[in-house]
Amino acid sequence: MAMYTQRSTLTQKVLGYGGLAVVLLIVLIPYGYIALTAFKPAEEIFDVRWLPRAWSLDAWRYAIEFEQFHVYIYNSMIAGLGAAVLALCVAVPGAYVFGRKQFRGKDVMFYIIVMALLFPFVLLVVPFTILWVKIGLYDTMPGLWLAYQVFIIPFAIWILRAYFAELPPFLEECAMVYGCTAFKAFWRVMLPLAKPIITSLMFLAFLVGWNDFLFSNMLTTGEGPRTASVIIYVSAVGGERVEWDVLMVMTLMAGIPPVLLYIVAQGQFLKTFAVRGH
């Protein structure tokens, strides 16, 4: 693991842990509060106190027994994974070429991708919906995977391109001399080298699918693969009044799997190696 292992001074430790504590508090205070709210009975929702007077599982029961929320968590999982895999297949080759190969029109093409990043997504839902119904992607999981790529591909290409470009030069050429085709050089050498950033990006892509509401809502009905974010909205936020306890339960249920997945996925990071430099 490429990490600075210098003997740390006490000051550094204090500053480090202090900084960590600040950031953790910024994250954990709101999250902790809503986590505890998920166990409050309805009457206590707006009582400002951390621990419920009476612990209640009503909202949990409702979310799981009636709303079958765990089913939608599963849908979200599939939506996120599919989005990540598809993004990988499309963006990694593209970014590799932009990062390490020379060809005519490269800069122009790259700027076209930049522009795609700026597009106001909310205006895309109409053409998308019409097209998706027409080509039979409406209400299907692949349809969602494909739609999410609008968010994922431009940014994935960006970040991957920067990463590929900064990898040491000549590696593919070396691989090609030693028996690889251009494709195999990419596959055997460049891809493993980009593993940390690819893992990160797949994770971010996963989160796009996991969190998206815009397309997940527009491109599915109850007959199709609805994701957890849509159900949260429909069950707890979409009425004029918010079902706070149900919202908190669903938020917890939807928030924890990605965090666990990330912690597990970090096994990839731990295998990181010094990529740049010799």
């Binding site: 000549f170 050429e173 691989a175 001399v177 050498v189 493993p192 080298l193 593993k195 190696f273 010799h278």
Partner: peptide, 14 residues
Amino acid sequence: NLAFVFQDTALFPH
């Protein structure tokens, strides 16, 4: 079937 040695070694870091 030729072998090439690069100036900056181009060893595969992984």
